[in-house]
Amino acid sequence: MTFTPPTATDPTQEGPHNGPVLVTGGTSGIGLATAEAVARTGRPVVVIGRSLERCRIAERQLHLAHPGEHAALVGDTTDPDALADAVHLAAERWGPVTGLVTAAGRLARGSVLALSPEDFRAALDTNVIGTWLAIRAVLPGMLAAGHGRIVTIGSVLGSTGAPERSGYAATKGAVAALTRSAALEVAGTGVTVNCVAPGPVRTPMNEADGATDAAAQAAFTAKVPVGRWGRPEDVAHAVLPLLAARSSFTTGAVVHVDGGYTAQ
């Protein structure tokens, strides 16, 4: 088998590759860091968040990252209408959405016996159904354009599990399975679907769950070979290559960004 380098006419290198990117949960944590990183590349970014105040802050930060056209919409990723509005807005201003990052997430803390059905369902709605709805919202346009990059945000707990995190781990395992199945369904169409699975990362969600507690910090850090918590920017740097046009042969992958946590 002979390797042929890409040429200027290689279809994987040209086309609607600089279209807008939609980021759910893009007003804080990993979502915001990823949205800012994408904006710095010059691509338009649309973020969805549940807080009007955070949406306004996120939009300002996106413009600071790269002056240009960006938008932040108030909405819930579990609402198909909110996702449709975001896709429609992007299409009207910049053309079909060609990149999606599903960063909206919700914790479900508690053991199998202690976790309430209500909290488990809420995490399922945001983490799994919200991811599925976002993919459904952008996929028709991507297929019509013959190009698209979808990156879901999972978790190492989807592979390893952890005490007191049975519900959250279950939802993130489902995200990985959804990613693989969606990737196979659209393989060969020009659309790729991959999952980035962070380890312990200092985000507002994790800080609210005890990441600011000294004992919790020490316990987590001791389990991470690189010896520190991750930063949202660490995850964003892993997402960016998967959104690129040249990333046409990577699909159905789960990429751990965890400081070596799952390598042990």
Rank of each mutant, 00 (worst) to 15 (best):
T2G: 14
T9P: 00
Q13R: 15
P16W: 14
N18R: 15
N18Y: 09
P20G: 04
L22I: 02
G25K: 07
G26K: 11
I30H: 05
L32C: 05
A35H: 08
A37D: 05
A39M: 10
R40D: 01
G42Q: 13
V46P: 02
V47W: 12
V47P: 07
I48V: 13
G49C: 06
S51E: 12
C55F: 12
Q61K: 13
H63K: 05
L64D: 15
A65M: 14
P67A: 11
P67H: 14
G68N: 13
G68F: 12
H70L: 01
V74K: 03
G75F: 09
A82G: 12
L83Q: 02
A84W: 10
D85H: 13
P96N: 13
P96W: 15
V97R: 05
T98N: 14
T98G: 15
L100F: 06
L100V: 01
A103Q: 05
G110T: 10
A114Y: 12
E118A: 15
D119I: 02
A122L: 10
L124S: 01
T126Y: 11
I129N: 14
W132V: 00
L133V: 00
G148V: 06
I150H: 01
V151F: 05
S159K: 15
G161W: 14
A162K: 14
P163K: 06
P163F: 10
S166Q: 14
G167P: 11
A174Y: 11
A176I: 06
A177G: 12
L178G: 00
R180D: 00
V186T: 01
A187H: 06
A187M: 02
T189R: 04
V191I: 04
V191L: 08
A197L: 15
A197G: 07
G199L: 07
G199T: 06
P200S: 12
T203S: 09
E207Q: 14
D209C: 03
G210T: 07
G210R: 13
D213M: 09
A216I: 11
A216C: 01
F220D: 12
F220T: 14
A222M: 07
V224I: 15
G227Q: 12
W229A: 02
P232F: 05
P232W: 07
E233G: 01
V235D: 04
A238I: 03
A238C: 09
L240I: 10
R246T: 12
S247M: 10
S247F: 03
F249V: 02
A253H: 06
Y261E: 09
T262G: 07
